[in-house]
Design a protein around this nucleic acid. Structure first.
Length: 819
RNA sequence: GCCGAAGUGGCGGAAUUGGUAGACGCGCUAGAUUCAGGAUCUAGUGGAGGUUUUUCUCCGUACGGGUUCGAGUCCCGUCUUCGGCACCA
């Protein structure tokens, strides 16, 4: 151990030693409890940013802590390597996506290694590797065979100028990002996963993870799934052999339906108005609607169609209306303007009648003239034989009644849509099917997997899907009949890769299957997952869904992949998210070069608790650096004292007892801060306090001093090692201990050391602190009360006043109530 | 509009189940050390006021009420900021 703290030298030294000794190697050890610590793997966009540093620093504390706690830890890392930016780089800089991606992975791996994170670098998973995505392809084929996937038409953004499909983020204000031309919609056949089949399970299984996940993430997912219970009701069309089916959550208001609305882009609409005098008007309305999908005001047009309200036979008009969603429910609604605000607004605009069917005292005016819709519960009126029923009960009575007549059906509806996984892109995993003129859609044979991406696709950003233009790829033989056939040229949404990568980690070199079943059984589920809140819905929902699919395909036998989830906040600078456009980016390389990895990690952990946004502060970083230097100097000063390992039966002096107490107090609190709440900022604050106490210690070279100081320093170094591991290793060696501190057992605190002989208690008068008294630890209430009352300072406040009450809270305070 | 999170010193942030508000760090002030600067060490640091020695008083956790011996913490209402969804029938 040198006198001066030299972060670079020691960090590289210990990184090498960890690597040489393979101390973070993943292995199965049955005699220890397992712990699977996972952080969201990065997209290899170029270099790591502070968000990554934060994410992985948090994860590393947990992994290192659990390891020291005696768990067998798996802590893997990989790269989510497919995606659009690689393709864009290819278009802009004429660099192959593969090359670009590989280079970025190399750079980022180097950066992550330089941070000293405890990953097993032999077990990296890269999703663009055919040895990874082949299993995804196989899984897709299994899902296809089980009818878990299907093909249907879907609307995509299309640039007629570039003749290519655009992703949402490539459409800027309705124009193409490349050529600026107007973007149109186009319908093409795409692949969908039937995630809606799992909607109920995704909802129900939240119970299994409640408590381990942030409640707000579960709420977001619940809203996203958007379950609503109601009924499908059939309305017959007058004069036509057609039925309009609607979904409603309020069958109790059926008697109040005075009109109906249909989505302008509903296929049935065209058919209904065909040949009528309304056809032209409706067509124009639909056209206008398709152009401007963002609706400012409710608009509609009468279709000339009337339908029969099944509950009372009333003839009610059908409007095409811009606020009706084609994708939700049936795309047709019944409108009850008296009890639905949207319908109310529409009715007002087009002068349509209102009919009140739910009565509530004090809310519904006697004359029935409403200023707004009443959406609450009440008593049914104007509802035939259902009058006087409470609305909640009426809901199901009316549904039942209609159901018996075959006109309604109790239904559960979800806002969640099936997952469209087709992308008209090159840099993704090819969807492994073949189109044969004779046999239709045929999956690729398992022995022919992986369907590898051809290397030489033309990447220009125009002319459609790049794979379509690679003849050698497209032209193939039908796996079934052997005849001429064409390959699917779409690739998977990259969320597919990230939906199961955590399973590949259990056996990343597996040659014969996606992952080893036994190992998965051992490691899964992930005990702690750490990542950004921005993935609250998509990634986390898809990963949950995949886990259930894999379970149903007998790959695994768990329902949920992530037992606990920690969502970390953003890294902010000057009040805004770090971004190129704002010019407020802090480069991790620069910080590591200037202060070292330990300082970077320590600052980022100290500045805020993980789930909160973190304000970057250059001054704060210096503070962390100063702290590490301070620790270094004090350890250096006492390094030989630590080596001597003195022993005394009992600490007698006040100062050494105090330090002994603080040492164990620190262990307790640091452990709890990490274990219970992941509040590393307060844990680090405790370490600073212990450090300050060691500085303040009046060292005189007595045996007792040596014991107290030695214990304090060894403890400090061990506790610090999960936050700043390199400096801790170097100091550990410096005080004569055997490497590695990373392999040490986490210190346990001694309950006895935490017992204080006397306790300081506050004395308050009417809630205001007036004095402090010191009492024996097991003093009785009477004794405490007496002590407090005898205080001269307290006397001052209670003299001449009526003492109404004395509240004694043991070990905390005494409150006097006077008047 | 709906759902969610958060409002505490000059700043980042502490404060177990209601029990001494402001831990720890940054910044600032003063002193020691130094030729000097930096670094380091020591002390102080919520605001206002009275003493002008050590002490004392009042006000303070977005705002207004309430419960309680006691509220940053619990309840009711209001405001502001941020995030998500956005006509989901």
């Amino acid at each position: 151990m040198e006198e001066r703290y030299n972060p670079h030298k020691i960090e590289l030294k210990w990184q090498e030693r960890w690597e040489e000794n393979k101390i973070f190697k993943t292995k199965i050890e049955k005699d220890k409890p397992k712990f699977y610590e996972l952080e969201m793997f990065p997209y290899p966009s170029g270099k790591i940013h502070m968000g990554h540093v934060r994410n992985y620093s948090i994860g590393d504390v947990i992994a290192r802590y659990k390891r020291m706690k005696g768990y067998n830890v798996m802590h893997p890392m990989g790269f989510d390597a497919f995606g659009m930016p690689a393709e864009n780089a290819a278009i802009e800089h004429n660099l192959h996506p593969e090359t670009w991606t590989r280079e970025n992975i190399t750079t980022m791996t180097k950066q992550l290694k330089r941070m000293g994170f405890s990953y097993d670098w032999d077990d990296v998973v890269i999703t663009s590797d055919p040895e990874y995505y082949r299993w995804e392809q196989k899984l897709f084929i299994e899902m296809l065979k089980k009818n878990m996937v299907y093909r249907k038409k879907a609307e995509v953004n299309y640039c007629p100028n570039c003749q290519t499909v655009l992703a949402n983020e490539q459409v800027i204000d309705g124009r193409c990002w490349r050529c600026g031309g107007e973007v149109t919609k186009k319908e093409i056949d795409e692949w969908f996963f039937r995630i809606t089949d799992y909607a109920e399970q995704l909802l129900k299984d939240m119970e299994q993870i409640r408590g381990g996940w942030p409640e707000r993430v579960l709420i977001q997912q619940r809203n996203w799934i958007g379950k609503s219970v109601g009924a499908k009701v059939k309305f017959k069309v007058f004069g036509k052999n057609e039925v309009l089916e609607v979904f409603t959550t309020r069958p109790d208001t059926l008697f109040g339906a005075t009109f109906m609305c249909i989505a302008p882009d509903h296929p049935l609409l065209k058919k209904l108005v065909k040949g009528s005098s309304y056809e032209e008007r409706v067509r124009r309305f639909t056209e206008k609607f398709l152009k401007t999908k963002d609706i400012k005001e409710k608009e509609g047009v009468f279709t000339g169609i009337y339908a029969e309200n099944p509950v009372n036979g009333e003839k009610i008009p059908l409007y095409a209306a811009n606020f009706v969603l084609l994708e939700y429910g049936t795309g047709i609604i019944m409108s009850v303007p008296a009890h639905d605000q949207r319908d109310f607004e529409f009715a007002k605009k087009y002068n349509l009648p209102l009919k009140v069917v739910i009565y509530k005292e004090g809310v519904i005016p006697k004359d029935g003239k409403l200023m707004e819709a009443y959406e609450g519960e009440g008593i049914l009126i104007n509802s035939g034989q259902f009058n006087d029923l409470p609305s909640e009960q009426g809901k199901w009575e009316i549904t039942k009644w209609l159901q018996e007549k075959g006109l309604a059906e109790k239904t559960v509806n979800y806002a969640l849509r099936d997952w469209n996984v087709s992308r008209q892109r090159y840099w993704g995993a090819p969807i492994p099917v073949v189109y044969c003129k004779r046999c239709g859609i045929v999956p690729v044979k398992e022995e022919d997997l992986p369907v590898k991406l051809p290397e030489d696709a033309p990447l220009t950003g125009e002319g459609g899907s790049p794979l379509k233009r690679v003849e050698s790829f497209v032209k193939t033989r039908c796996p079934k009949c052997g005849g001429e056939a064409e390959r699917e040229t779409d690739t998977f949404d990259t969320f597919v890769e990230s939906s199961w990568y955590f399973l590949r980690y259990v056996s990343p070199h597996e040659k014969d299957k996606a992952f080893d079943k036994e190992k998965a059984k051992y490691w899964m589920p992930v005990d702690q997952y750490v990542g950004g809140i921005e993935h609250a819905i998509m990634h986390l929902l898809y990963a949950r869904y995949f886990t259930k699919v894999l379970r149903d395909l007998k790959y695994i036998d768990i329902d949920e992949p992530f037992k606990r989830l920690l969502t970390q906040g953003m890294v902010i600078k000057d009040g805004a998210k770090m971004s190129k456009s704002k010019g407020n980016i802090v480069d991790p390389d620069y910080i590591v070069e200037k202060y070292g990895a330990d300082t970077s990690r320590l600052f980022i952990l100290f500045a805020a608790p993980p789930e909160k946004d973190l304000d970057w502060s250059d001054k704060g970083v210096e503070g962390s650096y100063r702290f590490l230097n301070r620790v270094w100097r004090i350890v250096y000063r006492y390094k030989d004292v630590c080596k001597s390992k003195g022993r005394v039966a009992e600490l007698k002096e006040e100062k050494s007892r105090r330090l002994h107490y603080l040492t164990h107090f620190t262990i307790k609190h640091v452990t709890e801060d990490i274990e219970k709440r992941y509040h590393f900022n307060t844990a680090i604050a405790r370490l600073m306090e212990l450090t300050n106490a060691i500085y303040e210690y009046n060292y005189e070279g007595k045996e007792e001093d040596k014991v107290a100081i030695g214990e304090a320093i060894r403890t400090l170094v061990m506790l610090l090692s999960v936050f700043a591991p390199h400096i801790a290793e170097e100091m550990w060696e410096g005080i004569g201990e055997k490497p590695f501190v990373s392999d040490q057992c986490w210190p346990e605190y001694d309950e006895k050391a935490l017992v204080k002989e006397t306790i300081k208690m506050a004395v308050t008068v009417n809630g205001k602190v007036r004095d402090e008294i010191e009492v024996e630890k097991d003093a009785t209430e009477e004794k405490i009360r007496e002590l407090a009352l005898n205080s001269t300072r307290i006397q001052k406040y209670i003299q001449g006043k009526e003492l109404k009450k004395v509240v004694v809270v043991k070990h905390r305070l005494v409150n006097m109530v006077v008047r």
